[in-house]
Design a protein around this nucleic acid. Structure first.
Lengths: 347, 347
DNA sequence: ATGAAAGCGCTAACAG
DNA sequence: CTGTTAGCGCTTTCAT
């Protein structure tokens, strides 16, 4: 007597082929979408596959194709900040959307706590077809290491050292910050100030540079006393703003390099009895969910972190994920995404 | 002339064995940490491996062991909320910490947007050793589907239907909410109100139940008019609180079912000129980073979402990840993690 | 258009 | 303790 073993024996190409009455090769052709198969064979294979609820064994496939079908999402960030920053999940989400749109089953997200060696081995071990680096600090060697190991690498955010020619995708931080400067001045601020991001992050630097340029274009000065350092947290925005308020000539405008810090700034302002936007105007950066939730709503610079990506088949990790071979060979072009001012109540 | 091909030919067990002068089997034993190998063999294999910078090919290994070494992290959540909620990255991070501590290389995170069939196929295709479900709504069928497909499943959060016996890990939402009720009353509130979470999330229900119980224990009533619905967003907390403030007898205490809503509540209160904690006391839930950043600091109920996990070798996905075979066979015990009140300035 | 056959790199018996 | 021998399930020439 023959017993059907459903649970214990997952369907294989072999079994599907048998049921369909064709060879394993043909079954494989059908299931991997080759064109040169007769109609008859195709339908019977497809039927058999459905009947056996066949799913292709990725390990076996990877073994021969030398592709894993997933891309690493590496967060090179102090633990607390990465996960605390609302910005980061958006990126993850965008990556997801793109990758799955490209027909890849999932994103593999790495973590640096295990230490570079672990990650390196992981990536080099054929686990991933490519790696996306997010929120890089300073001059991290890991991207280079991976690239040297043959893994295509894309950076989210402009690389710190101009020398290392990695393809990247970034928002136009510089241009967006200039927009913020214009807004502040055009609304009447004459003594604008800024709360910067951490010095080792290129996004922070770019935003400061852009803010400087924007003010200059409007003929407004930015003395060093009105540039205070933050680190992208709410608390740092609060503290930096308090420092600003202690000055003899209080600023009448604050550009915070991200929304978190802008929220902290608003709290400090409110507690010191300073009206927003009456006495001090505030502009943030990112257009995080938080920005729409403050009262008054925070005017901010939107970057298309996730919104723009799913619609955009051309760039970023989608190009990587969709065709690792191409990425491996050709250059993936870098892209700078446009930013725009979202005017709410704080200006 | 012989040319060394470093890049194009990744080292295999074969090549390592050859260089070390042993058989492939012995090399394999060494590299997978078997004990029954002579010192001599061990060192020469290790040397050869280092020299060739050998990394084991996971696909090949998976093919034979039928293990992938990764666990799925499935977020069954309305897109916006999952990624907007600061709570969620914490979970991801906790999962990461546990899984990598257990020697697994990474977490595979799934997404439901591709649709259940895709995810199902993915998980059933031998891609993952287990699946962790996060933030389940209502009575989602997917966990059952996966379990039926032979994938061990663990739920983060108590399952909606008591009937389905899935192992889960959850915070003591009920107990924590009772703590919040006690705090409010003990600090002087006599007309406490609550902003609830969405009705289809068990955590929201549990918190409401716990709040009810806590008040009852203090002999304080909770009329239906002081129970308003929110959906865990800042905005909903703001709106719900405004509704509360329009009532004839204003509440003198608000328990929001999460910190986001508590922040919204504080905004509404402030805008209506209501002092916190002077006229109205506020308590949140989660102890999100946001809670420490408000002014005054938000009193809230902390749940050990991530903190407790890495230290705790026994539970949750660590047990899954560390030993999928055991999980597949035996029951993974469910666990309810303790909550505690974090007193800041709003009570 | 289809089948047969040869591995991909690894692990797991099984002998020695 | 070590080597030999089989495959895991799939893709891919190469014939047919």
């Amino acid at each position: 007597m023959v017993t059907k073993q459903v649970r214990d024996a997952p369907a294989t190409l072999e079994s599907v082929a048998a049921l369909a009455g064709v060879s394993r090769a043909t079954a494989g052709r059908v299931l991997s979408g080759a064109t040169n198969v007769s109609e008859g064979a195709r339908t019977s294979v497809l039927d058999a596959a459905r009947q056996l609820s066949y799913v292709t064994n990725q390990a076996a496939r990877s073994l021969v194709t030398r592709r894993s079908g997933s891309v690493a999402f590496v967060v090179a960030e102090a633990e607390d900040r990465a996960f605390g920053d609302p910005f980061f999940p958006g990126l993850l989400r965008g990556a997801h959307a793109e990758v799955s749109a490209a027909g890849k089953p999932g994103v593999r997200d790495g973590d640096r706590r295990a230490g570079p060696p672990a990650l390196e081995r992981f990536a080099a071990g054929g686990h991933v077809d490519a790696a996306v680096f997010v929120s890089l600090h300073g001059d991290d060697p890991l991207p280079r290491t991976l690239r040297d190991a043959g893994v295509p690498v894309v950076l989210s955010g402009r690389p710190y050292r101009a020398g290392t020619r990695f393809p990247f995708v970034d928002a136009d931080n510089e241009g967006g910050a200039a927009l913020a400067a214009h807004e502040l001045v055009d609304r009447g601020s004459r003594r604008p100030a800024t709360v910067t991001g951490p010095a080792d992050m290129i996004a922070g630097e770019d935003r400061l540079a852009g803010f400087r340029r924007g003010l200059q274009e409007r003929g407004v000065a930015l003395p060093p006393s009105r540039v205070v350092a933050g680190d992208f947290t709410i608390q740092s925005g609060y503290a930096a703003t308090e420092r600003l308020l202690r000055q003899r000539y209080r600023p009448d405008g604050v550009f915070a390099a991200n929304d978190q810090m802008a929220v902290g700034a608003m709290q400090a302002l409110r507690e010191h009895g300073v009206s927003v936007p009456g006495e001090v105007r505030v502009v943030g950066f990112d257009d995080a969910p938080l920005a729409a939730a403050t009262h008054p709503g925070l005017t901010t610079v939107r970057q298309p972190v996730e919104q723009a990506r799913p619609r955009d088949g051309a760039g970023w990790c989608s190009s990587l994920a969709a065709d690792p071979a191409a990425a491996r060979g050709r250059r993936v072009p870098s892209r700078v995404l446009p930013t725009e001012l979202v005017r709410r109540g704080t200006t």
